[in-house]
Structures are given as C-alpha cells and as structure tokens.
Amino acid sequence: MSIVYQPKILLLLFSLIFFIIYLFYLTGEKKYKKDTVQTIAYFSGKTPYQNIKLQNVYWGFFKNFEKLYLFLSKIQRENTNDYVFMFIIWLTFILLTICLI
C-alpha cells in the first residue's frame, strides 16, 4: 500500500488531469444563443430518446434481477410476526453451526 498510496503524488496527478480538462474547455464556443437549437444535445437515431426520464437509468439491471427483488419484497411486508419469525430462524441457524460443528 505504501507504493500505491502517496497522497501528494495523487493530488499532483488530479491537478494535472483537471488542467487538461480545462484546456479542452477553452476550445469551446464562447458565443451562443440560449434557448435555441444550439443548446439541445444531439442524439442520433429516432426521437423517442427525448422523453426518457433519469429515474429509469438502470433499467437493464433491474430487468435481470427482477426475481430477486420480488422475492425480497415478499419477505419485508411490515408484519411483526414475520420479523420475529426471521429472528428466531436465523438464531437457530447460528445455534446449530456453533453447537454441532
């Protein structure tokens, strides 16, 4: 860890990277008109991309893990009996591992 982590070298590296980003920023256009076509980001392809919201940014992840999330939501349904039941089941698991092994 002593080779990887020397914070002064890391700070120098980060300031160098930010300097390069600043050089890229300086090459942009300074004069533009607000609220016209010039400020809208360009997406290639069909136009439905304009209406997608930021809440759905991880939709692929959720689609593949859907079974896990449904299973977990069935457990946590805010019923007191279920919570106490889960506590006693995990306690018996710990008891069996300690006593029998």
Binding site: Q76, Y83, M86, F87, W90, L91, I94, L95, I98, C99
Partner: peptide
C-alpha cells in the same frame, strides 16, 4: 454463546437482523 451473540448481532444490524 449463540444467544448472547445473536442478541448483540441484532443490535448491530447486519444481514439477518436488519429489519
């Protein structure tokens, strides 16, 4: 040990006892 350990684990709040 298992009783005391699981009561203290309940207070910590890791995986089985996080409800």
């Amino acid at each position: 040990l298992s009783f005391i350990g699981s009561a203290l684990l309940l207070k910590v709040g890791v995986f089985p006892f996080y409800f």
